[in-house]
Each structure stands twice: as structure tokens, then as C-alpha cells.
Simulated scan of single mutants.
Amino acid sequence: MDLDNYISKLKSSSATPGGGSASAISSMFAASLNSMAALLSTGKKKLLAHDNYFKTIADESGSIIGELKNLSLEDEKTFQGIMDALHIDRNELDRADAINTAIKNSVRVSWKIAGISLHNMENSLFLCNNGNANLITDDISAAYMAYTAIHTSVNNIKINLKFQKDKNYKEAELLKLKFFMENVESIIESIRLKENSIIP
């Protein structure tokens, strides 16, 4: 992915890429910072008890970044899918089903970005508490980037569910969001406590 090219597209008048795609990029930066912090924590004499976990974070970051890169592109496609469904002639019998399916596809991608971003936050918190203390602001930055990605994804899910006609599906998704965000807010609160304890 060429970042300059991506930013040119993002700042243009085109509807894609948009916030959902950009949220995946934000989470990619979070994973990258986690990787750096983990690598610079590995092999440290005082941190050897957590060495295997540092290596795990560093090793998995490459696949996380690759997956988020794919999800950034997939988000663009699913958004376009919604636009295409909305442009189906209102007299077409399958229009409503097409819209509902397109919305579910978009929600699925947003959930994937949010889930991976939550894992990035968990890794950031672990590094905050156990990693190289010289990298603490990088750990905190990573957590906030992932947190931003989650909020963007959740907002996209909520706005899409607003137009979803499948009531059972909508209710189930909103319940999932409630419990998911309770977990997210618990982690970011721990990050904030750590931040406040070390940054004047």
C-alpha cells in the first residue's frame, strides 16, 4: 500500500476510501507500534519473564497488519456494495434483500476491524504494564490509535444497523456491541490510569 496514494484518495471528493477504511489504517499503526515496543522489550534482562509474550506480539504484528490492509480494501468494497444496492430500482422485488445483505457485509467487515483493534489494545496494555519503560508513550499511542479504530468501526456498525430491516439480526448486533464496548472501555480506562501515573 502506497501511503501517499492512499492519502490522496482519502482527501479527495470520492466517497471511498472513507472512515471505515481509514480506521483499519489507524489500527495498522497501532500494531506497528506494538511490534516496535515488543521487539525493544525482547531480551531485556529485567523483562525476561515476559520474553515469550513479547516475541508473540512482535511475530503476530505482521499478520495483523496484513489482515487490516485487506480489511481496509474490503471496507471500500462493502460500502460500494451498499451504494449499488440503494441504486436498485425501487420497483425491483429483490431491492430490500439486496440492501439488507449489503449492510450485513459492511457490518461484518467493521466487526473484524473492531475485533483486531481490541486485540491491539490488549497488547498495548500488556506492553504498558510489562514492557520496556522507555517505550511507554508509544504503547499508549498504540492503544489510542486502536481505540479510535474501534469507535469508528462501532459507529459504522450502528449507522448501518439503523437501516437494517432484519429486526432479530439488528437486536443481536446491538447486544453484542454493548458487551464489546464494556470490554473496550475497561481497557482504555486502564491505559488512562497508566498514562496519568507517568505523564505529568
Rank of each mutant, 00 (worst) to 15 (best):
S35E: 15
N120M: 06
F179H: 15
A102F: 01
N105A: 10
N91C: 04
S190H: 05
S61N: 10
M181Y: 03
E189Y: 05
H119T: 15
W111C: 05
I150P: 05
K194L: 08
F79H: 09
I88F: 03
I150G: 03
S141I: 07
L93E: 12
S72R: 12
L135T: 07
F180L: 09
E195I: 02
W111A: 08
V107R: 11
N196P: 00
E122L: 04
I140C: 05
E185L: 08
K194Q: 13
E122Y: 00
L118P: 03
D166L: 08
E171R: 10
S190W: 00
E92G: 04
N156A: 06
E76W: 00
E60W: 00
K158Y: 07
F163W: 11
I64K: 09
E182T: 05
A102W: 00
D94V: 14
F179W: 09
K158M: 13
I140D: 07
E195Y: 11
K162P: 09
H119D: 13
I187A: 02
A85W: 00
M28K: 10
I103P: 06
A149L: 02
L177C: 09
I88K: 05
I159H: 06
L39Q: 13
L10V: 05
N160K: 15
N5S: 12
S124D: 05
L86A: 01
E171F: 02
G18N: 03
N168Y: 10
E92H: 12
V184F: 02
N100V: 13
H151K: 14
I187N: 04
I99A: 09
N156H: 03
E74V: 07
I198D: 03
N130D: 08
S141N: 13
A49D: 15
N134E: 11
T42L: 06
I198R: 08
A114K: 03
F163H: 15
D166I: 10
I150W: 02
Q80V: 11
A30P: 10
Y6Q: 01
S72M: 11
L40K: 10
I159E: 15
N120G: 03
I82R: 05
S32W: 05
N168M: 11
F126H: 07
I103A: 10
L48G: 06
E92V: 14
K178E: 15
D94R: 15
P200N: 15
E189G: 09
D97I: 11
I88D: 07
A38G: 04
H151V: 00
N130H: 13
S41I: 02
E189I: 05
S110G: 00
S23D: 09
L10T: 06
P200W: 02
D2S: 15
S106A: 14
L127G: 04
E122R: 14
K170C: 11
A24F: 03
K162F: 14
D94H: 15
N129G: 04
